[in-house]
Nucleic acid binder design. Structure first.
Lengths: 247, 247
DNA sequence: ACAAAAGTGTTTAATATACACCCATGT
DNA sequence: ACATGGGTGTATATTAAACACTTTTGT
Protein backbone atom coordinates (compact mmCIF):
# COMPACT_ATOMS: atom_id res chain seq x y z
CA UNK A 1 0.00 0.00 0.00
CA UNK A 2 2.76 2.35 0.98
CA UNK A 3 4.66 1.13 -2.06
CA UNK A 4 1.79 1.94 -4.38
CA UNK A 5 1.58 5.33 -2.87
CA UNK A 6 5.19 6.02 -3.61
CA UNK A 7 5.09 4.77 -7.15
CA UNK A 8 2.00 6.62 -8.16
CA UNK A 9 3.50 9.96 -7.27
CA UNK A 10 6.74 11.67 -8.09
CA UNK A 11 8.74 11.28 -4.96
CA UNK A 12 12.06 13.07 -4.48
CA UNK A 13 14.03 10.49 -2.49
CA UNK A 14 16.74 12.91 -1.41
CA UNK A 15 14.88 15.50 0.62
CA UNK A 16 12.33 15.11 3.37
CA UNK A 17 10.42 17.38 5.70
CA UNK A 18 9.94 16.65 9.40
CA UNK A 19 7.38 18.39 11.57
CA UNK A 20 7.59 19.14 15.27
CA UNK A 21 3.92 19.64 16.06
CA UNK A 22 3.27 21.41 19.34
CA UNK A 23 0.00 21.38 21.24
CA UNK A 24 -1.10 22.62 24.64
CA UNK A 25 -3.60 20.84 26.88
CA UNK A 26 -3.59 23.36 29.79
CA UNK A 27 -1.21 21.19 31.80
CA UNK A 28 1.88 21.25 29.64
CA UNK A 29 3.38 21.63 26.20
CA UNK A 30 3.01 18.50 24.10
CA UNK A 31 4.60 17.20 20.91
CA UNK A 32 2.94 14.84 18.49
CA UNK A 33 4.97 11.68 18.05
CA UNK A 34 4.16 8.75 15.84
CA UNK A 35 4.98 5.12 16.19
CA UNK A 36 6.43 3.84 12.99
CA UNK A 37 4.68 1.16 11.06
CA UNK A 38 6.72 -1.97 10.94
CA UNK A 39 5.81 -4.27 8.14
CA UNK A 40 8.59 -6.56 9.23
CA UNK A 41 7.81 -7.45 12.82
CA UNK A 42 11.35 -8.50 13.55
CA UNK A 43 12.63 -4.98 13.55
CA UNK A 44 14.12 -3.84 16.80
CA UNK A 45 11.57 -2.22 19.03
CA UNK A 46 14.02 0.35 20.37
CA UNK A 47 13.51 4.01 19.50
CA UNK A 48 10.27 3.29 17.86
CA UNK A 49 8.75 6.73 18.16
CA UNK A 50 9.63 9.53 15.82
CA UNK A 51 8.55 12.88 14.50
CA UNK A 52 6.13 12.85 11.58
CA UNK A 53 7.70 13.56 8.24
CA UNK A 54 7.86 12.45 4.65
CA UNK A 55 9.91 12.62 1.52
CA UNK A 56 8.93 15.59 -0.58
CA UNK A 57 7.36 15.23 -4.00
CA UNK A 58 9.34 16.34 -6.93
CA UNK A 59 6.97 19.12 -7.94
CA UNK A 60 6.27 20.31 -4.44
CA UNK A 61 7.61 23.26 -2.50
CA UNK A 62 9.10 22.57 0.93
CA UNK A 63 6.38 24.50 2.75
CA UNK A 64 3.72 22.63 0.80
CA UNK A 65 5.24 19.31 1.73
CA UNK A 66 5.22 20.23 5.40
CA UNK A 67 1.59 21.33 5.15
CA UNK A 68 0.73 18.05 3.49
CA UNK A 69 2.32 16.03 6.28
CA UNK A 70 0.47 18.10 8.80
CA UNK A 71 -2.87 17.75 7.09
CA UNK A 72 -2.57 14.03 6.53
CA UNK A 73 -1.72 13.55 10.16
CA UNK A 74 -4.02 15.96 11.91
CA UNK A 75 -6.73 16.78 9.40
CA UNK A 76 -6.10 20.44 10.21
CA UNK A 77 -5.57 23.26 7.75
CA UNK A 78 -4.42 26.85 8.15
CA UNK A 79 -1.91 26.02 10.77
CA UNK A 80 1.00 28.08 12.05
CA UNK A 81 4.01 26.47 10.43
CA UNK A 82 7.60 27.67 10.33
CA UNK A 83 10.70 26.22 8.79
CA UNK A 84 13.50 26.47 11.34
CA UNK A 85 16.48 24.35 10.30
CA UNK A 86 17.76 21.74 7.89
CA UNK A 87 19.64 18.67 8.97
CA UNK A 88 22.06 16.93 6.68
CA UNK A 89 24.54 14.95 8.71
CA UNK A 90 25.57 12.08 6.42
CA UNK A 91 25.21 9.83 9.46
CA UNK A 92 21.70 10.90 10.38
CA UNK A 93 20.65 7.30 9.88
CA UNK A 94 23.12 5.66 12.17
CA UNK A 95 21.26 2.97 14.04
CA UNK A 96 20.56 -0.50 12.77
CA UNK A 97 16.86 -0.30 13.50
CA UNK A 98 16.54 2.94 11.56
CA UNK A 99 18.25 1.43 8.55
CA UNK A 100 16.10 -1.68 8.71
CA UNK A 101 12.94 0.33 8.93
CA UNK A 102 13.90 2.36 5.88
CA UNK A 103 14.45 -0.84 3.94
CA UNK A 104 10.92 -1.87 4.75
CA UNK A 105 9.41 1.43 3.77
CA UNK A 106 11.44 3.21 1.09
CA UNK A 107 12.27 2.47 -2.47
CA UNK A 108 15.80 3.80 -2.06
CA UNK A 109 16.43 2.94 1.56
CA UNK A 110 20.12 3.77 1.52
CA UNK A 111 19.85 7.10 -0.27
CA UNK A 112 21.16 9.97 1.75
CA UNK A 113 18.30 12.20 2.88
CA UNK A 114 18.55 15.83 3.91
CA UNK A 115 15.61 16.87 6.01
CA UNK A 116 14.09 20.31 6.29
CA UNK A 117 12.50 20.72 9.69
CA UNK A 118 9.37 22.70 10.54
CA UNK A 119 7.49 23.33 13.72
CA UNK A 120 3.75 23.77 13.89
CA UNK A 121 1.41 25.14 16.54
CA UNK A 122 -1.99 23.47 16.64
CA UNK A 123 -5.08 23.87 18.72
CA UNK A 124 -5.04 20.58 20.55
CA UNK A 125 -8.76 20.61 21.34
CA UNK A 126 -9.53 20.83 17.58
CA UNK A 127 -7.36 17.85 16.84
CA UNK A 128 -8.83 14.49 15.99
CA UNK A 129 -6.33 11.80 15.12
CA UNK A 130 -6.60 11.29 11.38
CA UNK A 131 -6.20 7.94 9.73
CA UNK A 132 -2.76 8.36 8.27
CA UNK A 133 -0.46 6.46 6.03
CA UNK A 134 2.41 7.64 8.20
CA UNK A 135 1.59 6.34 11.57
CA UNK A 136 0.63 3.17 13.28
CA UNK A 137 -0.27 5.17 16.33
CA UNK A 138 0.07 8.82 17.30
CA UNK A 139 0.70 10.20 20.75
CA UNK A 140 0.87 13.62 22.36
CA UNK A 141 3.98 13.50 24.50
CA UNK A 142 4.83 16.05 27.17
CA UNK A 143 8.03 17.89 26.33
CA UNK A 144 9.49 16.89 29.69
CA UNK A 145 9.18 13.21 28.84
CA UNK A 146 10.29 12.79 25.25
CA UNK A 147 11.74 9.30 24.82
CA UNK A 148 14.72 8.45 22.69
CA UNK A 149 13.54 8.94 19.14
CA UNK A 150 14.62 7.44 15.85
CA UNK A 151 17.20 9.07 13.58
CA UNK A 152 18.30 12.52 14.74
CA UNK A 153 14.81 13.43 15.87
CA UNK A 154 15.76 14.28 19.45
CA UNK A 155 18.12 16.88 18.05
CA UNK A 156 15.42 18.22 15.76
CA UNK A 157 12.97 18.43 18.63
CA UNK A 158 15.42 20.31 20.83
CA UNK A 159 16.18 22.86 18.13
CA UNK A 160 12.47 23.32 17.50
CA UNK A 161 11.75 24.03 21.15
CA UNK A 162 14.57 26.53 21.35
CA UNK A 163 13.24 28.25 18.26
CA UNK A 164 9.72 28.34 19.65
CA UNK A 165 10.96 29.82 22.91
CA UNK A 166 12.84 32.56 21.14
CA UNK A 167 9.86 33.37 18.94
CA UNK A 168 7.37 33.43 21.82
CA UNK A 169 9.52 35.93 23.69
CA UNK A 170 9.19 38.41 20.87
CA UNK A 171 5.94 37.65 19.11
CA UNK A 172 2.52 36.95 20.57
CA UNK A 173 1.98 33.58 18.94
CA UNK A 174 0.48 31.91 21.99
CA UNK A 175 -3.07 32.03 20.67
CA UNK A 176 -2.15 29.51 17.97
CA UNK A 177 -2.13 26.90 20.72
CA UNK A 178 -5.30 28.00 22.52
CA UNK A 179 -9.00 27.67 21.78
CA UNK A 180 -10.96 30.72 20.65
CA UNK A 181 -11.97 31.51 24.21
CA UNK A 182 -9.53 31.26 27.06
CA UNK A 183 -8.72 32.76 30.42
CA UNK A 184 -5.70 34.84 31.29
CA UNK A 185 -4.31 32.19 33.56
CA UNK A 186 -4.55 29.64 30.80
CA UNK A 187 -2.54 31.98 28.61
CA UNK A 188 -0.05 32.47 31.41
CA UNK A 189 0.30 28.73 31.95
CA UNK A 190 1.00 28.38 28.25
CA UNK A 191 3.82 30.90 28.44
CA UNK A 192 5.22 29.21 31.52
CA UNK A 193 5.06 25.79 29.89
CA UNK A 194 6.90 26.95 26.80
CA UNK A 195 9.45 29.25 28.39
CA UNK A 196 9.88 27.00 31.42
CA UNK A 197 9.96 29.91 33.83
CA UNK A 198 7.37 31.13 36.34
CA UNK A 199 5.70 34.45 35.56
CA UNK A 200 4.09 37.03 37.84
CA UNK A 201 0.34 37.17 37.35
CA UNK A 202 -0.12 40.92 37.59
CA UNK A 203 2.91 41.85 35.54
CA UNK A 204 1.98 39.32 32.88
CA UNK A 205 -1.54 40.72 32.71
CA UNK A 206 -0.32 44.28 32.35
CA UNK A 207 2.14 43.38 29.63
CA UNK A 208 -0.25 41.33 27.58
CA UNK A 209 -3.10 43.82 27.83
CA UNK A 210 -0.89 46.64 26.64
CA UNK A 211 -0.49 44.94 23.28
CA UNK A 212 -4.24 45.26 22.56
CA UNK A 213 -4.39 41.78 21.14
CA UNK A 214 -6.85 40.48 23.74
CA UNK A 215 -10.57 41.17 23.56
CA UNK A 216 -12.51 40.57 26.77
CA UNK A 217 -15.64 38.58 25.89
CA UNK A 218 -19.02 38.98 27.50
CA UNK A 219 -18.65 35.51 28.90
CA UNK A 220 -17.19 33.87 31.94
CA UNK A 221 -15.66 30.50 32.50
CA UNK A 222 -18.23 27.86 33.54
CA UNK A 223 -18.16 24.75 35.71
CA UNK A 224 -15.21 25.53 37.91
CA UNK A 225 -15.20 25.23 41.67
CA UNK A 226 -13.86 28.71 42.23
CA UNK A 227 -14.45 32.23 41.01
CA UNK A 228 -15.24 32.24 37.30
CA UNK A 229 -12.57 33.79 35.18
CA UNK A 230 -13.13 36.30 32.44
CA UNK A 231 -12.85 34.79 28.97
CA UNK A 232 -10.81 36.48 26.25
CA UNK A 233 -10.39 36.14 22.53
CA UNK A 234 -7.53 37.25 20.31
CA UNK A 235 -7.81 40.30 18.14
CA UNK A 236 -6.01 39.38 14.98
CA UNK A 237 -6.34 42.90 13.57
CA UNK A 238 -3.94 44.24 16.15
CA UNK A 239 -1.49 41.37 15.89
CA UNK A 240 0.58 42.95 13.14
CA UNK A 241 0.92 46.16 15.14
CA UNK A 242 2.76 44.47 17.98
CA UNK A 243 6.44 45.06 17.50
CA UNK A 244 8.36 44.19 20.58
CA UNK A 245 6.73 41.91 23.08
CA UNK A 246 9.57 41.19 25.42
CA UNK A 247 9.01 38.57 28.07
CA UNK B 1 23.00 6.46 -15.07
CA UNK B 2 22.13 8.16 -11.85
CA UNK B 3 23.92 5.37 -10.07
CA UNK B 4 27.09 5.78 -12.11
CA UNK B 5 27.13 9.47 -11.64
CA UNK B 6 26.89 9.22 -7.91
CA UNK B 7 29.53 6.57 -7.75
CA UNK B 8 32.00 8.35 -9.97
CA UNK B 9 31.96 11.80 -8.49
CA UNK B 10 30.70 11.78 -4.98
CA UNK B 11 28.60 14.85 -5.67
CA UNK B 12 25.07 14.98 -4.38
CA UNK B 13 23.24 16.62 -7.27
CA UNK B 14 20.06 17.31 -5.32
CA UNK B 15 21.21 19.60 -2.56
CA UNK B 16 23.37 22.70 -2.65
CA UNK B 17 24.54 25.30 -0.18
CA UNK B 18 24.58 29.03 -0.93
CA UNK B 19 26.51 31.56 1.10
CA UNK B 20 25.66 35.19 1.72
CA UNK B 21 29.05 36.54 2.74
CA UNK B 22 28.93 39.88 4.49
CA UNK B 23 31.84 42.26 4.90
CA UNK B 24 32.23 45.80 6.20
CA UNK B 25 34.60 48.38 4.73
CA UNK B 26 33.79 51.28 7.15
CA UNK B 27 31.51 52.89 4.60
CA UNK B 28 28.77 50.28 4.25
CA UNK B 29 27.79 46.66 4.51
CA UNK B 30 28.92 44.60 1.53
CA UNK B 31 28.04 41.23 0.09
CA UNK B 32 30.37 39.06 -1.92
CA UNK B 33 28.92 38.30 -5.34
CA UNK B 34 30.48 36.23 -8.06
CA UNK B 35 30.18 36.46 -11.79
CA UNK B 36 29.45 33.08 -13.19
CA UNK B 37 31.85 31.45 -15.51
CA UNK B 38 30.35 31.00 -18.91
CA UNK B 39 31.98 28.38 -21.00
CA UNK B 40 29.45 29.02 -23.71
CA UNK B 41 29.77 32.67 -24.64
CA UNK B 42 26.35 32.80 -26.20
CA UNK B 43 24.59 32.64 -22.87
CA UNK B 44 22.52 35.65 -22.05
CA UNK B 45 24.42 38.25 -20.11
CA UNK B 46 21.44 39.19 -17.95
CA UNK B 47 21.51 38.41 -14.22
CA UNK B 48 25.04 37.30 -14.42
CA UNK B 49 25.94 37.82 -10.79
CA UNK B 50 25.00 35.38 -8.08
CA UNK B 51 25.78 34.25 -4.58
CA UNK B 52 28.57 31.74 -4.16
CA UNK B 53 27.41 28.20 -3.62
CA UNK B 54 27.94 24.62 -4.64
CA UNK B 55 26.38 21.20 -4.69
CA UNK B 56 27.22 19.29 -1.56
CA UNK B 57 29.30 16.15 -1.61
CA UNK B 58 27.63 12.97 -0.73
CA UNK B 59 29.67 12.33 2.41
CA UNK B 60 29.66 15.90 3.60
CA UNK B 61 27.62 17.63 6.26
CA UNK B 62 25.76 20.80 5.27
CA UNK B 63 27.86 23.01 7.55
CA UNK B 64 31.02 21.48 6.14
CA UNK B 65 29.90 22.16 2.61
CA UNK B 66 29.24 25.79 3.42
CA UNK B 67 32.66 26.09 5.05
CA UNK B 68 34.24 24.56 1.99
CA UNK B 69 32.58 27.09 -0.33
CA UNK B 70 33.71 29.86 1.93
CA UNK B 71 37.27 28.69 2.11
CA UNK B 72 37.63 28.07 -1.59
CA UNK B 73 36.33 31.54 -2.29
CA UNK B 74 37.96 33.62 0.38
CA UNK B 75 40.85 31.55 1.66
CA UNK B 76 39.58 32.27 5.16
CA UNK B 77 38.99 29.78 7.94
CA UNK B 78 37.27 30.02 11.32
CA UNK B 79 34.54 32.23 10.05
CA UNK B 80 31.21 33.05 11.63
CA UNK B 81 28.75 30.99 9.62
CA UNK B 82 25.07 30.35 10.27
CA UNK B 83 22.50 28.35 8.43
CA UNK B 84 19.35 30.44 8.19
CA UNK B 85 16.90 28.96 5.68
CA UNK B 86 16.41 26.38 2.97
CA UNK B 87 14.87 27.15 -0.38
CA UNK B 88 13.11 24.52 -2.40
CA UNK B 89 10.68 26.14 -4.75
CA UNK B 90 10.45 23.72 -7.70
CA UNK B 91 10.66 26.79 -9.96
CA UNK B 92 13.80 28.23 -8.39
CA UNK B 93 15.45 27.86 -11.79
CA UNK B 94 12.95 29.74 -13.85
CA UNK B 95 14.86 31.88 -16.27
CA UNK B 96 16.27 30.72 -19.56
CA UNK B 97 19.74 32.01 -18.83
CA UNK B 98 19.85 30.14 -15.51
CA UNK B 99 18.86 26.90 -17.19
CA UNK B 100 21.41 27.38 -19.96
CA UNK B 101 24.16 28.10 -17.51
CA UNK B 102 23.38 24.94 -15.57
CA UNK B 103 23.62 22.94 -18.78
CA UNK B 104 27.11 24.30 -19.32
CA UNK B 105 28.21 23.58 -15.76
CA UNK B 106 26.41 20.61 -14.24
CA UNK B 107 26.26 16.97 -15.06
CA UNK B 108 22.54 16.87 -14.26
CA UNK B 109 21.45 20.34 -15.30
CA UNK B 110 17.74 19.72 -14.98
CA UNK B 111 17.77 17.97 -11.60
CA UNK B 112 15.74 19.75 -8.99
CA UNK B 113 18.03 21.30 -6.39
CA UNK B 114 17.10 22.30 -2.88
CA UNK B 115 19.51 24.83 -1.47
CA UNK B 116 20.45 25.34 2.15
CA UNK B 117 21.44 28.94 2.70
CA UNK B 118 24.08 30.27 5.09
CA UNK B 119 25.35 33.69 5.90
CA UNK B 120 28.89 34.45 6.91
CA UNK B 121 30.60 37.42 8.51
CA UNK B 122 34.15 38.01 7.39
CA UNK B 123 36.80 40.56 8.16
CA UNK B 124 36.99 42.33 4.86
CA UNK B 125 40.50 43.66 5.41
CA UNK B 126 41.79 40.06 5.85
CA UNK B 127 40.20 39.00 2.61
CA UNK B 128 42.28 38.35 -0.45
CA UNK B 129 40.34 37.15 -3.46
CA UNK B 130 41.24 33.50 -3.87
CA UNK B 131 41.59 31.80 -7.19
CA UNK B 132 38.40 29.85 -7.24
CA UNK B 133 36.76 27.26 -9.35
CA UNK B 134 33.45 28.96 -8.72
CA UNK B 135 33.94 32.41 -9.98
CA UNK B 136 35.09 34.25 -13.01
CA UNK B 137 35.21 37.39 -10.96
CA UNK B 138 34.23 38.31 -7.43
CA UNK B 139 32.91 41.63 -6.24
CA UNK B 140 31.98 43.20 -2.91
CA UNK B 141 28.67 44.84 -3.57
CA UNK B 142 27.06 47.36 -1.25
CA UNK B 143 23.77 46.07 0.10
CA UNK B 144 21.99 49.15 -1.18
CA UNK B 145 23.00 48.35 -4.76
CA UNK B 146 22.50 44.64 -5.24
CA UNK B 147 21.69 43.97 -8.89
CA UNK B 148 19.21 41.40 -10.11
CA UNK B 149 20.80 38.07 -9.36
CA UNK B 150 20.46 34.65 -10.90
CA UNK B 151 18.01 32.02 -9.59
CA UNK B 152 16.23 33.03 -6.39
CA UNK B 153 19.35 34.67 -5.01
CA UNK B 154 17.76 38.07 -4.42
CA UNK B 155 15.28 36.35 -2.15
CA UNK B 156 18.06 34.49 -0.37
CA UNK B 157 20.01 37.70 0.13
CA UNK B 158 16.99 39.51 1.55
CA UNK B 159 16.27 36.75 4.03
CA UNK B 160 19.93 36.69 5.06
CA UNK B 161 19.99 40.40 5.76
CA UNK B 162 16.81 40.18 7.83
CA UNK B 163 18.33 37.35 9.81
CA UNK B 164 21.54 39.24 10.37
CA UNK B 165 19.63 42.30 11.56
CA UNK B 166 17.63 40.27 14.06
CA UNK B 167 20.76 38.56 15.35
CA UNK B 168 22.75 41.77 15.70
CA UNK B 169 19.99 43.32 17.79
CA UNK B 170 20.35 40.59 20.37
CA UNK B 171 23.90 39.34 20.16
CA UNK B 172 27.14 41.29 19.92
CA UNK B 173 28.44 39.74 16.72
CA UNK B 174 29.67 42.98 15.22
CA UNK B 175 33.30 42.22 15.88
CA UNK B 176 33.21 39.39 13.34
CA UNK B 177 33.16 42.08 10.68
CA UNK B 178 35.82 44.34 12.17
CA UNK B 179 39.60 44.18 12.40
CA UNK B 180 41.24 43.40 15.73
CA UNK B 181 41.59 47.06 16.57
CA UNK B 182 38.81 49.48 15.88
CA UNK B 183 37.32 52.70 17.14
CA UNK B 184 33.92 53.12 18.74
CA UNK B 185 32.61 55.15 15.87
CA UNK B 186 33.63 52.43 13.43
CA UNK B 187 31.64 49.98 15.51
CA UNK B 188 28.72 52.35 15.58
CA UNK B 189 28.87 52.83 11.81
CA UNK B 190 28.77 49.06 11.46
CA UNK B 191 25.60 48.85 13.53
CA UNK B 192 24.05 51.67 11.58
CA UNK B 193 24.95 50.07 8.27
CA UNK B 194 23.44 46.73 9.22
CA UNK B 195 20.36 47.94 11.07
CA UNK B 196 19.87 50.86 8.69
CA UNK B 197 18.98 53.25 11.48
CA UNK B 198 20.95 56.14 13.02
CA UNK B 199 22.19 55.64 16.57
CA UNK B 200 23.02 58.12 19.29
CA UNK B 201 26.76 58.20 19.99
CA UNK B 202 26.60 58.51 23.78
CA UNK B 203 23.80 56.05 24.31
CA UNK B 204 25.50 53.56 22.03
CA UNK B 205 28.76 53.92 23.90
CA UNK B 206 27.09 53.37 27.25
CA UNK B 207 25.24 50.30 26.08
CA UNK B 208 28.19 48.65 24.44
CA UNK B 209 30.55 49.33 27.33
CA UNK B 210 28.14 47.83 29.83
CA UNK B 211 28.49 44.43 28.16
CA UNK B 212 32.21 44.32 29.04
CA UNK B 213 33.11 42.92 25.67
CA UNK B 214 35.31 45.84 24.68
CA UNK B 215 38.87 46.25 25.91
CA UNK B 216 40.38 49.69 25.52
CA UNK B 217 43.85 49.29 24.04
CA UNK B 218 46.87 51.41 24.85
CA UNK B 219 46.81 52.71 21.32
CA UNK B 220 45.19 55.48 19.40
CA UNK B 221 44.13 55.78 15.84
CA UNK B 222 46.86 57.19 13.55
CA UNK B 223 46.93 59.29 10.43
CA UNK B 224 43.63 61.03 10.69
CA UNK B 225 43.10 64.75 10.28
CA UNK B 226 41.15 65.12 13.49
CA UNK B 227 41.37 64.02 17.09
CA UNK B 228 42.71 60.49 17.35
CA UNK B 229 40.22 57.99 18.59
CA UNK B 230 40.80 55.37 21.24
CA UNK B 231 41.25 51.89 19.80
CA UNK B 232 39.41 48.92 21.24
CA UNK B 233 39.58 45.17 20.94
CA UNK B 234 36.97 42.56 21.67
CA UNK B 235 37.10 40.47 24.80
CA UNK B 236 35.95 37.05 23.70
CA UNK B 237 35.97 35.74 27.27
CA UNK B 238 33.02 37.93 28.18
CA UNK B 239 31.09 37.26 24.99
CA UNK B 240 29.22 34.27 26.33
CA UNK B 241 28.11 36.22 29.41
CA UNK B 242 26.14 38.72 27.37
CA UNK B 243 22.53 37.71 27.48
CA UNK B 244 20.32 40.44 26.20
CA UNK B 245 21.87 43.15 24.13
CA UNK B 246 18.88 45.07 22.93
CA UNK B 247 19.42 47.79 20.36
C1' DA C 1 41.36 79.71 11.63
C1' DC C 2 38.84 76.21 10.13
C1' DA C 3 36.99 71.60 9.28
C1' DA C 4 36.15 67.04 11.11
C1' DA C 5 35.43 63.75 14.18
C1' DA C 6 36.40 62.53 19.39
C1' DG C 7 34.96 62.64 23.86
C1' DT C 8 31.99 63.40 27.66
C1' DG C 9 26.84 63.80 31.69
C1' DT C 10 22.50 64.92 32.95
C1' DT C 11 17.63 65.01 32.85
C1' DT C 12 13.38 62.77 31.90
C1' DA C 13 10.33 59.15 30.38
C1' DA C 14 9.28 54.42 29.97
C1' DT C 15 9.57 49.91 31.43
C1' DA C 16 10.40 46.05 34.59
C1' DT C 17 10.07 44.01 39.02
C1' DA C 18 8.55 42.83 43.49
C1' DC C 19 4.95 42.08 46.33
C1' DA C 20 -0.30 40.66 49.36
C1' DC C 21 -4.91 40.74 50.15
C1' DC C 22 -9.95 40.11 49.32
C1' DC C 23 -13.44 37.74 46.17
C1' DA C 24 -16.54 34.24 44.13
C1' DT C 25 -17.63 29.54 43.70
C1' DG C 26 -18.25 24.42 44.59
C1' DT C 27 -17.81 20.92 47.88
C1' DA D 1 -16.03 26.59 56.60
C1' DC D 2 -12.68 25.72 53.61
C1' DA D 3 -10.08 25.06 49.43
C1' DT D 4 -9.19 26.90 44.94
C1' DG D 5 -7.94 29.98 41.80
C1' DG D 6 -9.62 35.04 40.23
C1' DG D 7 -8.89 39.66 40.42
C1' DT D 8 -6.63 43.90 41.64
C1' DG D 9 -2.45 48.52 42.68
C1' DT D 10 1.62 50.63 44.21
C1' DA D 11 6.32 51.61 45.11
C1' DT D 12 11.03 51.06 43.53
C1' DA D 13 14.68 50.03 40.42
C1' DT D 14 16.32 49.73 35.95
C1' DT D 15 16.73 50.98 31.37
C1' DA D 16 16.00 53.96 27.31
C1' DA D 17 16.00 58.38 25.07
C1' DA D 18 16.93 63.02 24.17
C1' DC D 19 20.19 66.33 23.99
C1' DA D 20 25.29 70.17 23.12
C1' DC D 21 29.53 71.69 23.95
C1' DT D 22 34.67 71.29 24.29
C1' DT D 23 38.92 68.90 22.53
C1' DT D 24 42.37 67.41 19.33
C1' DT D 25 44.47 67.22 14.98
C1' DG D 26 45.67 68.20 9.98
C1' DT D 27 45.32 71.41 6.42
Amino acid sequence: MLQNYIKSTNINPHVSVDCVIFGFDFTGLKVLLIERKRENQKINIQKNMLLPGDLIRDDEDLDTAAQRVLRELTGLKNIYLTQFHSFGDPNRVSSKSDAEWLISVREQPTARVITVAYYALVKLHDYKPAASSFAKKTEWCDISAIPELAFDHNLIFTKALEHLQRTLREHPIGFELLPKKFTLSQLQKLYEAILQIPLDKRNFLRKILKTNILIPLKEKQQGVSHKRAQLYGFDKKNLSKVKHFGI
